[in-house]
């Protein structure tokens, strides 16, 4: 994959990156004087205030970063997260269609999903919404033809080759296979997002009763 740098007047993007390189460069960019460091699925974007830093200096810093062997540095000093997931009805709306696309029986889907080594590729779409990827080959899972008017907070979807975690109840077009007990985003917390890019994620299976207990009956 060839890496190149796109440059606007106050942000730039190192593009064409493998996922693990995105995480490594994002970690290496911390403390580099950037206003925002935004991982994408195959890119890393960095923004700055032109009143504080010149375009030339920003571009040079990004080139140095892109050329560094940040891979060698341990990118994942972030503690892995365990999320408690219920794959049972009524939270697994679209398990049938997803299982079929994966060539699995519906009963086998939870075991497959929980067995993967997931990693947070990026956050996007809405505050705390996490995009997870894994090493398994996943067929391109399409968006629902008829998006749901309401997807519950904590819903777990599979779209494209990505597993997505909904932090808030919202309309949504991702096929849903389960629901987690954890709160993904709390703006009042000192660290508002539970997950961050580069973090390893493990899913631990719970039943509907346990989900209800952990979510205070909100489920």
């Amino acid at each position: 994959m060839s890496q190149s740098i796109y440059c606007a007047d106050d942000w730039l993007m190192i593009q064409g990156l493998p996922a693990e390189r995105v995480a490594a460069l994002a970690a290496a960019a911390e403390g580099g004087g950037w206003d925002d460091i935004v991982p994408g699925l195959d890119s890393l974007s960095l923004s700055w205030d032109p009143a504080q830093r010149s375009l030339e200096a920003a571009h040079a810093a990004a080139e140095a970063l892109a050329g560094s062997d940040a891979d060698a540095a341990p990118a994942t000093t972030i503690a892995p997260a365990t999320l408690h997931i219920c794959y049972e009805a009524p939270w697994a709306h679209d398990a049938d269609i997803v299982a079929e696309l994966l060539g699995l029986s519906t009963d086998a889907l939870p075991g497959w999903h929980a067995a993967q080594d997931w990693r947070v590729a990026m956050l996007g779409f809405q505050p705390g919404f996490a995009y997870l990827n894994c090493d398994a080959r996943i067929p391109d899972i399409p968006r629902l033809a008829d998006p749901r008017a309401r997807v519950e907070a904590g819903s777990v979807g599979l779209l494209g080759q990505i597993c997505g975690l909904y932090p808030h109840a919202s309309p949504g077009g991702w096929p849903i296979i389960g629901r987690i007990a954890e709160t993904l985003f709390d703006p009042h917390a000192s660290s508002p997002a539970l997950l961050q890019a580069g973090q390893a994620v493990t899913f631990a299976r719970i039943d509907a009763a346990e989900l209800a207990r952990r979510t205070g009956g909100a489920a």
């Binding site: 206003d35 925002d36 935004v38 923004s47 505050p127 985003f185 508002p192 961050q196």
Partner: peptide, 10 residues
């Protein structure tokens, strides 16, 4: 809001 775009905060 500053520096929070990596958490998908606009």
């Amino acid at each position: 809001y500053r520096g929070l775009r990596k958490l998908a905060v606009p």
